[in-house]
């Protein structure tokens, strides 16, 4: 599952050597991690996800709505794949999102700033 650990120091050390922040917000890393984990467990083939991502990006580029956000398209593609085979329907996701949005102020704890936050939901 996991790549072999590599040295992370030295001039060519990833990712610092190339000076890029991989994710601009914690949710982006969670959306990334979900797709990679689901692919790894065989939930879908990568080509299926890729096709959904291409479709989402093409739709935005044909009629740009809002500013460009790569990971919004990534998340949309993941939603499309999971809705497509009935794993998580759009209705279910909308309902759960609305529940989370209705949480009282202050409940929206900030621990996912460190990349470890996730609602366990049980």
């Amino acid at each position: 599952m996991s790549p072999a650990p590599l040295a992370v120091d030295g001039p060519a050390a990833p990712p610092r050597a190339n000076g890029e922040l991989l994710f601009s917000a914690p949710w982006e890393s969670r959306a990334f991690g979900m797709a990679v984990t689901l692919h790894d467990t065989g939930a879908f083939g990568w080509a299926t996800f890729q096709a959904a991502l291409i479709a989402r990006i093409a739709a935005w580029e044909a009629a740009p709505a809002g500013s460009w956000s790569y990971y919004e398209h990534w998340l949309g593609a993941l939603e499309d794949v999971l809705a497509g085979d009935g794993t998580v329907t759009t209705t279910e996701l909308d309902a759960r999102s609305a529940t989370l949005a209705a949480r009282p102020a202050g409940h929206d704890h900030r621990d996912d700033e460190t990349g470890h936050g996730h609602g366990h939901g049980h």
Partner: peptide, 25 residues
């Protein structure tokens, strides 16, 4: 919020393990 909701639903259904996700990330 949609990401958090999706992760909750997938976790509840045993389809993703947040700790495994952490490792991948």
């Amino acid at each position: 919020l949609r990401t958090e909701a999706l992760e909750q639903l997938l976790t509840e259904r045993g389809l993703v393990d947040p700790a495994v996700m952490d490792t991948f990330i």
